[in-house]
Amino acid sequence: MDPQEYQQIEQQNTPPTPYLKNCLKAFLVGGIICAIGQAITFLYMIFFDFTDKTAGNATVATMVFIAMILTGLGLYRKLGAFAGAGSAVPVTGFGNAVVSAAIEGKTEGWVLGVGGNMFKLAGSVILFGVGSAFFIALIKLILVSMGVVEW
């Protein structure tokens, strides 16, 4: 049996990934998470002296905190298994990546274990997030100085 023949057999017997179903689940759960985030923003604005601009930071902190609690209780893993990108893309997913890696590193001590492993998964998110932000800002700066768009 040659590899090509085998690939065919393998493909016939492997269930296809349900992309549409996964997308719908991600859309639903991601939407719910974002709706909760929006509700928290409104709560901060209505009950405290936060504006649209300033409530953002507080909301992110709160969402990451909630994600941290859920990760510690082992619930975020179950949510992630169901929702996929829906729970990974919002900031809660970032919190989950940081906290889960930190929990795992606990047995190797605080400095090398928790400290060294914490950004194992989230590190590349930070790197490429900051990197792409820099380049987008650079492009916009060039466009503005050329007079194509305004700030």
Partner: peptide, 8 residues
């Protein structure tokens, strides 16, 4: 201001 807080 277009801020929601101001509106509220």
């Amino acid at each position: 201001s277009s801020d929601f807080k101001m509106h509220w």
